[in-house]
């Protein structure tokens, strides 16, 4: 068995994990299941990043999405449901039309993709990306880098302000 076949099998495995768990997120009637579905989606996408030679991004995905965002969402699920509200259910509505709409969106996207000639500057050679990304962030992307810090500061001030309990 050659390596390309093996890598294909591994790719399809992760692709299946990603999509199946994303479907769980969407179709599960329990918020907890949805959150765990999201966990596997994030893992699957991180694995796809590795396939694409984006090692730093894969690590970032795990640290921030799984370690941060998902935990926050789980907190949201847990904190907002007290014991008397045990049936962590989310009613879905208009399922049939939305499934049709989803298929239509997917169909249009794939149809458009099939007839598109994407830009092609030649494939990038696989190599470690961390140092190069660091240089880019400090050079070409210095302004977005700084603006992102302001954005995080605003979010920090705002989130703290909103949840703080203080007699006013």
């Amino acid at each position: 068995m050659d390596t390309s076949l093996l890598s294909q099998i591994v790719f399809y495995f992760f692709a299946a994990v990603t999509l199946a768990s994303a479907a769980v997120v969407v179709f599960s009637r329990s918020l907890i299941y949805s959150a765990f579905g999201l966990l596997f989606t994030f893992f699957g996408v991180a694995a796809l990043y590795v396939f694409l030679g984006a090692d730093f991004l894969a690590a970032t995905q795990l640290v921030i999405y799984v370690g941060g965002i998902l935990i926050l969402l789980l907190f949201g699920v847990m904190l907002t449901h007290k014991l008397y509200d045990l049936n962590l259910k989310t009613e879905t509505f208009q399922v049939a039309p939305s499934v049709l709409l989803m298929l239509a969106v997917f169909g249009v996207l794939v149809l458009a993709m099939m007839q598109t000639a994407w830009y092609n500057a030649g494939p990038r050679q696989p190599e470690p990306t961390t140092a190069a990304i660091g240089t880019l962030l400090m050079k070409d992307f210095i302004l977005p880098f700084e603006v992102a810090s302001v954005l995080l500061l605003i979010a920090l001030i705002g989130a703290a302000m909103i949840v703080r309990r203080r007699a006013e």
């Binding site: 999509l19 997120v25 989310t90 879905t92 709409l101 298929l103």
Partner: peptide
């Protein structure tokens, strides 16, 4: 496929946290 699932999630869910999950997708 992820995008379509996310859109679907956003459209069908009433719970704010679920909608956020759709946005993450």
């Amino acid at each position: 496929a992820l995008f379509s699932l996310g859109i679907m999630c956003v459209l069908t869910r009433k719970n704010a946290v679920s909608v956020l999950m759709g946005v993450e997708l």
